[in-house]
C-alpha cells in the first residue's frame, strides 16, 4: 500500500492537521487508511480519542524508532494507504520513516523560518534517495495560508518552484474547521459546523485528490 510520510523537522508546521485531513478525506473517498502516530505529543491519538474514528481508518499509536520499519512492512500492501505522522524534530525516526515512503509530504507555513527548516527534510530525502538507490517522491504543501498570498509566500513559492520542488495545490488554508478536528475528532463531515464548512471540505478534498493523483502517477489529477 502506498506509504505517505508527513515530515518536517519544524514544529507547528501543520503535520498532524495535514495527516488527519488527508487520512479522513482518502477514507471518505473509499481507501482503507492506517495512520501511524509516531509523535510523542500523540496528536493523532488525541484526535482519535476525541470522537468516533471515521469508517475505514485505523490509528496505531506510540510507534517508535525501533518499531517503525517493522510496523510499516506488514501494512505495505496494495489497495490501502498508510499515513505516518512524525514529531517536528530532526530524528532518526524521521529518516527511517522516509526510507519506507512512497510519497513524503512536507507541510510548510509560508514563512522564511518554515521554509528554511523544512528544506532540511528535502535535503534528507535527497540523501536517502542516493543511499538507498531509489526515487522517493516528495512534495510540499503550504499550510495555514490566507485568502490573499503575502509577498513572502509568493517569494518562497517561486524559490521552491525554481528548485524543482513539487508544490501541492490546493494549499491548506487557515480554517477554523481544520483546527476544530482536534476538538471534536471525527472528520469535517461529522463535526458541528465551524465557519464555512463547504469551503473547508472542498479545500481538504482537493488536497487529498491532488495527493491521490501523485500516488497513481497523475500529479495533475
Amino acid at each position: 500500500m502506498p506509504v505517505i510520510v508527513i515530515a518536517s523537522p519544524k514544529g507547528g508546521a501543520g503535520k498532524s492537521t495535514t495527516a488527519v485531513l488527508l487520512g479522513t478525506e482518502l477514507a471518505h473517498a473509499g481507501a482503507p487508511v492506517t495512520m501511524l502516530d509516531c509523535d510523542p505529543n500523540r496528536s493523532l491519538t488525541l484526535w482519535s480519542q476525541r470522537g468516533t474514528v471515521p469508517a475505514g481508518i485505523e490509528v496505531l499509536s506510540g510507534v517508535t524508532e525501533a518499531e517503525i520499519v517493522r510496523t510499516i512492512k506488514p501494512l505495505d500492501q496494495d489497495g490501502q494507504v498508510v499515513i505516518v505522522d512524525l514529531e517536528g524534530v530532526a530524528s532518526r525516526l524521521v529518516s527511517r520513516a522516509i526510507s519506507q515512503a512512497d510519497l513524503v509530504i512536507t507541510p510548510m507555513r509560508a514563512t522564511t523560518l518554515d521554509a528554511t527548516i523544512g528544506a532540511r527534510a528535502l535535503a534528507l530525502i535527497a540523501e536517502e534517495e542516493e543511499t538507498l538507490d531509489r526515487r522517493i517522491p516528495h512534495a510540499v504543501v503550504f499550510t495555514m495560508t490566507k485568502g490573499v498570498r503575502s509577498k513572502q509566500h509568493v517569494g518562497i513559492e517561486h524559490s521552491l518552484r525554481r528548485q524543482g520542488v513539487d508544490l501541492i495545490e490546493p494549499a491548506l488554508m487557515e480554517r477554523v474547521a481544520f483546527s476544530a478536528l482536534f476538538e471534536f475528532g471525527g472528520d469535517l463531515r461529522s463535526m458541528p459546523p465551524q465557519g464555512n464548512m463547504e469551503a473547508a471540505i472542498g479545500n481538504a478534498a482537493g488536497f487529498a485528490q491532488a495527493v491521490y493523483g501523485r500516488l497513481v502517477g497523475e500529479p495533475g489529477r
Partner: peptide
Amino acid sequence: ADERAAGLGFVERE
C-alpha cells in the same frame, strides 16, 4: 541511511 541522516543532524533522539 542512518549514517547519512546523522550527517544532516537527524540523529537518535529517543
